[in-house]
Amino acid sequence: MTTEDLRRMANRIRRRDLQAVFEAGAGHIGGEMSVTDILTALYFRILNVDPANPLDPERDRFVLSKGHTACALYVTLAEKGFIPKEEVATFLKPHSRLNGHPNRTKVPGVETNTGPLGHGLPVAVGMAISAKLSGAAWRTFVVTGDGEMQEGSNWEALSSAAQYKLDNLTLIIDHNRLQQGARLADTNNLAPFAPKLEAFGWAVREIDGHDMDQIVAALSPDSVTPGKPNAIVAHTNKGHGISFMSDNVAWHHKVPNAEQYKQAMAELEEAVQ
């Protein structure tokens, strides 16, 4: 997919996500809008995954550690063909496979059940060690939120990853500067991330997490620094693409009313023109 096609796909995923959250009356729309471009680049350009064989041992692994943005992942998996597109309409409905947080035993394409923060990176480290032990070429990618990096388990895992020289592991921090209740800077300010990650032995790139060319370039195998785990600090906006949500802490898990939904959809539709 060209980056232009990727941009179109990301817009389509944002619209479907917005609709699903509106119809379900729940979701984490702010963080979904911030991570969508990254998910799109991964699934439609980078990841070697096959919806027809979701457990192929040689597949790349992707872990959405910020599991509360599951709806964006479900829409992406549906667009990729892992689940039927019409199933997205069941998001959060009783007995739906599409729970508020992703479940690997129910949803093909999901690798590990996330939700409690600070779980994805340690699991991804185990995946990457496994590939190294097997001499396998598959790569492991994990997306965390920036607020999520406050969980101490991440720093255990960052250190272990460097110790094991996991250059087959890429961490993407969705750095949207907002956490549930307030700005990162006003809560427990880990920013700037790059010097901390470098001090832990990681190779770090900083990108505009909404610039598809930059995302694709940073995720490509050519960008991997050998002998070190690779981190991408993706500077993003919570609620990206929707003016009244963008960079607004109120939209962590707020649900748009009918009027807001109409306006948000109109803005996204206009953006695709």
């Binding site: 990176l121 340690p122 480290v125 185990g126 060690i129 496994s130 250190s159």
Partner: peptide
């Protein structure tokens, strides 16, 4: 993994996935 029990168990799960 060093003295890091959360990573100990998480890494175990990742190894099983692999």
């Amino acid at each position: 993994v060093g003295i890091a029990e959360q990573t100990l168990v998480g890494v175990g799960a990742g190894l099983a996935n692999g």
